[in-house]
Design a protein around this nucleic acid. Structure first.
Lengths: 143, 143
DNA sequence: TTATATCCTACTAACTTGGTAGGATAAATA
DNA sequence: TATTTATCCTACCAAGTTAGTAGGATATAA
């Protein structure tokens, strides 16, 4: 399950991407429009900025803007940032690899292969889910 | 990520399935062979029994045995029992459905479709991952 | 100088995870 | 029938995570 943090981040990013003509957009505006607690959202956007997914400008009329085009940012990136590994087992993750403590022998583990197949399929789809794609899907559904 | 509980459960079930000629198998034997804390394993096997995945026989020479053939029990069942929903969003799970609080409009949500596609693919693979299949894979890897 | 932004540090309540402790109950066998 | 060896059942607990809140420092446009 995605954490609230990840879901808030995705909603905020979709909102910023949709309103790209009015960037930068302030935290308070996003908070009101998307119903996300202000202070919590603040910390989320700071993390997105530190991960170079967003840019920030301080001071009056400041706020956040995308640091790339919507087709360059995808769900896998956001999920990894806030929730960590995507895979079912730590021994099949690429960016967060760790041995499975419960595992007697990684090489002959019967569920490792299965977890790897699921991971590959899932990551492929999450990388295809760019914010451009998400917005396209929303528009299609609204018709 | 799978919880330790789920991983212990899978390891215990694989062990019981592999040694089906010696059933019932006691908690203490599984605990020693698979390096799972005794009391914790006890509670796990009780849950598996309540879910009718295992049978138990009390008293001397008692223990646990499978309540079905290894090709009838799969990973999806065990994961749902201990970790709950498999999907990324509560609004696309079949057995644990809930509205997404953060969602403004479920019908036009751009990430719901994506989550549903991933869920379908993942569940399909987890249902194919029966204990017969897991053991087959292990044997193949040991060669 | 003032209004309005982000930035930064610290705290916290509630929940989940990964266990442990201790005894009640049931059945096989001597 | 007593003993041994299982499961069954209730209660507890430490550590970590999640979803926030509080309060002020800092930067910038007008």
């Amino acid at each position: 399950m995605l954490s609230k943090k990840t879901k808030y981040a995705i909603n905020a990013l979709v909102y910023i991407a949709k309103n790209k003509d009015e960037q930068p957009i302030s935290v308070s505006r996003i908070s009101e429009e998307q119903n996300i607690p202000l202070k919590f959202l603040e910390s989320i956007l700071t993390e997105l900025k530190n991960a170079r997914i967003l840019n920030s400008t301080k001071g009056k009329y400041g706020g956040y803007s995308l640091n790339a085009t919507p087709d360059e940012i995808h769900m896998a990136k956001v999920m990894r940032l806030f929730d960590g590994a995507i895979a079912l087992l730590p021994c099949v993750t690429y960016e967060f690899y760790e041995r499975c403590e419960e595992c007697v022998d990684e090489e002959t583990c019967g569920i490792r292969q299965i977890a790897m197949e699921i991971r590959n399929e899932t990551v492929k789809r999450l990388k295809a889910a760019t914010f451009a794609d998400i917005i396209k899907r929303e528009k299609k559904l609204k018709k």
